[in-house]
């Protein structure tokens, strides 16, 4: 049971290992806060759709499985979008169309298809939660890197000295790609060292 949760954090991390759900990962991480919000919204959707799908999995005809999952996911995404608009207006404005784009985040349909449609409610919930948390962590790390170099702050708090010139490239699309590429590389190095120690 614990394993279902833990694998999403490191071994099968959706961003660094599976390279899934790239468009929100790259698009919204100009600031750590936006990464965190997007991560939490995605976690909400992946967990709640995972729970619903695993509890109705026996009644779902195989042929229309995918459209049904998609409708369920889109429903939760709409709910998340309206919730953000109602309670966190500024954040929702900054995330813009990337909140509805959670619908097509391959991570969510992937978990529904590969795990929730085959396992019980409790395990599916844990699996989804692990993936969601892993996704959120990755987004926050990426957002923090880009915010530190691109704006000299983290979560809005200034950490670079006054003399620091912002690297505007970091908040532009190109910076997103390059930072993530390097982070994936760094992840692989650490992963290899850790598994060598164990082995």
């Amino acid at each position: 049971m614990i394993k279902d949760f833990a694998k999403g954090l490191w071994k099968e991390n959706p961003v660094f290992v599976q390279v899934l759900g790239m468009c929100p990962t790259l698009a919204v991480t100009t600031k750590a806060l936006f990464g965190l919000s997007m991560g939490l919204a995605t976690t909400f959707v992946v967990v709640s759709s995972g729970l619903v799908i695993s509890s109705i999995r026996r009644f779902v005809p195989d042929q229309v499985r995918i459209p049904m999952f998609t409708v369920i996911i889109a429903t939760f995404v709409t709910a998340a979008d309206y919730f953000l608009k109602a309670n966190f207006f500024q954040i929702s404005k900054a995330l813009g169309p990337y909140v509805p784009l959670i619908v097509v985040n391959c991570l969510i349909l992937g978990r529904a298809e590969a795990f929730a449609s085959k396992h019980g409610v409790a395990r599916s919930g844990l699996d989804a939660l692990g993936m969601g948390v892993g996704f959120t962590c990755a987004l926050v790390v990426l957002g923090a890197c880009r915010e530190i170099l691109g704006a000299g702050t983290v979560f809005g708090a200034r950490i670079m000295g006054e003399g620091f010139t912002n690297w505007i490239i970091m908040v532009l699309p190109a910076g997103a790609f390059i930072t993530l590429g390097l982070l994936v590389g760094g992840f692989n190095i650490i992963d290899k060292k850790v598994s060598k120690k164990k082995g």
């Binding site: 390279v19 532009l172 699309p173 190109a174 790609f177 390059i178 590429g181 390097l182 590389g185 692989n188």
Partner: peptide, 22 residues
Amino acid sequence: PEPLQGAGITLIIAGMLAMAFM
């Protein structure tokens, strides 16, 4: 470099393409 093989290098190249398109 080994750690960058696969997704890593693809992303970095995409970054350079993005700069070119700018």
